[in-house]
């Protein structure tokens, strides 16, 4: 028997095996850290791809302040970033209640854990709701724009540089407009789901009659502001290039700039929102487990700690999304 037992000479040392846990963490917590590390790489893949596209279109990327400038109950007021700042606070605060729940768990205080878990769930719900509202504004759009043959976006401003909405430009031509269907066109086209509010001809005609309206392109000048064309250039652009009316944003058209901007917005904030939703679900499960006393019987609130790790990670990701989508 003795011959089959390998003696490595490391018995009793940190990495010598046996009952000793070298990283001094339980299996569950270690696995949560594994997951978080790999998930962090997924998110950084998304954000790095966003950075790639942004560097690629360095001089024509939308300015975030102009895209996300809504605040509830303040219609038509330019409120850059206030709302995302509010969302950031909500998420940081729900992180605080989560870590307070973990701390109360260490001291086996069931009532406190219950309250803090509930607050965390509420914070998460407010955050996801806010994100839905952001999406709604982004999809609906504010001013509308026209698209050129090359897929560039042309926006409208008045002579003071203030944005002008399509509805203030268009004239009613009483046209007969039909929804384009694939069966009536080339095979690779897709069905139009709805017609834009105005046809491109209505915008073109209206633009000719309104002398104080100019076109703003996506390109930045040397100060980082978007270049505004002269009236003559604007008329020429409208005549020769404009082919489509764009209202709001989806995966293929986007009134704010390159469609890629909308794609990344939907995928990154969507993937993050999905994580938050999963986190809320886990928190609710833990919340009820706390109430029915599962952890009290188990003698340890470590499950709160593990779910807490995930929740803080979601907060951590938002800190980066906030910086790279809204600030930089």
């Amino acid at each position: 028997m003795e011959a089959t037992v390998a003696r490595t000479g490391t018995e009793g040392k940190t990495w010598g095996g046996g009952k000793k846990s070298p990283l001094k963490a339980s299996y569950g917590k270690l696995m949560m850290w594994f997951f978080i590390t790999s998930d962090a790489l997924t998110f950084s893949g998304f954000l790095a791809a966003y950075g790639f596209s942004r560097f690629k279109f360095l001089d024509s990327w939308p300015i975030a302040d102009e895209v996300f400038n809504h605040f509830p109950f303040l219609h038509g007021v330019d409120a850059p970033m206030y709302y995302v700042a509010f969302m950031t606070f909500i998420l940081i605060f729900s992180s605080v209640t989560m870590v307070l729940a973990v701390d109360a768990g260490h001291h086996m205080k069931k009532a406190k854990v219950t309250i803090y878990m509930l607050l965390t769930v509420v914070g998460g719900l407010i955050f996801v709701g806010s994100q839905a509202w952001e999406w709604k504004n982004f999809i609906k759009g504010t001013y509308g724009a026209v698209e050129t043959t090359g897929g560039q976006i042309l926006q409208f401003v008045n002579t003071d540089g203030e944005r002008v909405a399509l509805k203030d430009i268009a004239v009613d031509l009483k046209e007969d407009r039909v929804v384009h269907e694939r069966k009536n066109g080339v095979w690779y086209s897709t069905d139009e789901s709805t017609l834009p509010t105005y046809s491109i001809n209505e915008i073109k005609e209206g633009f000719k009659t309104k002398n104080n309206i100019l076109i703003r392109t996506l390109e930045n000048d040397e100060n980082g502001a978007k270049i505004i064309l002269s009236r003559e250039e604007s008329l020429a652009y409208m005549d020769n290039r404009a082919v489509n009316v764009v209202e709001g944003a989806n995966l293929t058209h986007n009134e704010y700039g390159p469609p890629l901007f909308a794609d990344f917005f939907f995928f990154i904030t969507g993937f993050h929102g999905f994580h938050v939703s999963i986190g809320i679900l886990l928190n609710i499960i833990v919340f009820f487990n706390v109430i029915v006393g599962t952890y009290e019987r188990r003698g340890s609130y470590e499950m709160v700690e593990k779910v807490g790790l995930y929740w803080h990670f979601v907060d951590l990701v938002w800190v980066f999304v906030f910086t790279f989508f809204y600030l930089v």
């Binding site: 990283l23 963490a25 605080v96 807490g308 803080h312 907060d315 951590l316 800190v319």
Partner: peptide, 20 residues
């Protein structure tokens, strides 16, 4: 800096072992 604070204080990284 914010990421550091969240990981160290909220995720208790400061109390984990050096290896982890």
């Amino acid at each position: 800096y914010k990421a550091y604070l969240i990981t160290w204080a909220f995720m208790h990284m400061e109390h984990e072992s050096k290896g982890l």
